[in-house]
């Protein structure tokens, strides 16, 4: 059978210290994200959301790699995790892209010219 090299009969036991370190980091990042949200960034206020998402991504990465053992997992799991994130990015990215695109006005003069030249209602 096509097994990965990681035979699961001998479990990879992660040392306690690793779990505690990850836990501590998660706590630190939680405090950090609340702090960043509360301070006044002045003209850079728009940075609040990107920063919050960045910190959340770091926290999620810690959980995925260590608590969920992907760091020690097979390459196949890596591939599927990355594929899932890519697909989510497609869904969000393309959809939001439509809404951004709706605000881009076509060149009004070009628009005017074609509308003057041929009104589709008269063509019918």
């Amino acid at each position: 059978m096509s097994h990965d090299a990681h035979a699961a009969d001998s479990p990879h036991i992660v040392p306690l210290s690793v779990y505690l370190t990850i836990f501590a980091l998660l706590m630190v990042f939680t405090v950090l994200t609340v702090w960043v949200a509360l301070i006044d960034l002045g003209p850079y206020g728009w940075l609040h959301t990107p920063l919050a998402l960045l910190i959340a991504s770091v926290k999620a990465t810690l959980v995925v790699l260590w608590f969920m053992h992907v760091k020690y997992g097979s390459r196949l799991v890596w591939v599927f995790v990355v594929a899932g994130l890519a697909w989510l990015a497609l869904l969000v990215g393309i959809t939001v892209g439509d809404y951004v695109g709706r605000t881009w006005e076509p060149d009004p003069h070009a628009w005017q010219a074609s509308a003057d030249g041929a009104d589709f209602r008269q063509l019918g």
Binding site: V34, L38, D40, I55, A60, V63
Partner: peptide, 21 residues
């Protein structure tokens, strides 16, 4: 369980912290 935790890790800033400032 960790996955459910990760979802919350994103919901928290998206819903709560956004208005904190």
């Amino acid at each position: 369980w960790h996955f459910v935790d990760i979802v919350w890790i994103f919901l928290f800033p998206l819903l709560y912290l956004f208005g904190a400032g």
